[in-house]
């Protein structure tokens, strides 16, 4: 997995959480994971298809999601499955949206699919064969996890177009 594909996701997650929570965040752990993804809390999985293919999972415990929701609302939010689901979905949307903006401006083109939320006890289907990078981000509301599995499907458009002509 190439770091140039991963870096925009790390930068976007860091920026989205620090901006949304109006507080500094810190990347405290970064490791490769070759086993099936084990969810830590409520996970939003977003699939990406195009020049780059793969998936990104944003994973928060329900307690952290509730603290994030309360921080964003400016008042304590009552605990409910819907609030937790909405919070994780919207944070995932913002992280992915900001990441794909950076990648798109670098010349990569792809489609992003709406987030799938995983809250039940079953694992995440289709993640068993994927080498992924797991990033733990420390925020004032608690730790959030980003799990990224991504690979090139095609070279960037300008690189494809820049193939030298044969004499």
């Amino acid at each position: 997995m190439r770091m140039e594909l991963i870096q925009p996701f790390i930068n976007a997650a860091d920026a989205v959480f620090s901006e949304s929570l109006q507080a500094p965040t810190k990347i405290v752990d970064l490791e490769m994971d070759q086993e099936a993804y084990r969810r830590k809390g409520v996970a939003a999985l977003i699939a990406i298809k195009g020049d780059i293919e793969g998936r990104v999972i944003l994973d928060l415990s329900p307690e952290v999601a509730l603290k994030v929701a309360s921080q964003l609302a400016g008042t304590e939010v009552a605990a409910s499955e819907q609030v937790v689901r909405e919070t994780v979905c919207e944070m995932a949307n913002m992280v992915i949206g900001n990441s794909v903006t950076l990648l798109n401006d670098q010349g990569f083109h792809f489609k992003v699919f709406p987030p799938e939320i995983h809250m039940d006890e079953t694992g995440l289907a289709g993640s068993a064969d994927t080498e992924a990078l797991v990033i733990c981000i420390e925020t004032p509301c608690g730790n959030v996890y980003l799990n990224i599995a991504m690979h090139y499907l095609r070279r960037r458009r300008q690189e494809r177009n820049a193939v030298p002509a044969l004499d």
């Binding site: 992280v95 900001n98 401006d105």
Partner: peptide
């Protein structure tokens, strides 16, 4: 108002 803000 969108999180996806690329040029296109």
């Amino acid at each position: 108002v969108s999180s996806v803000g690329y040029q296109e």
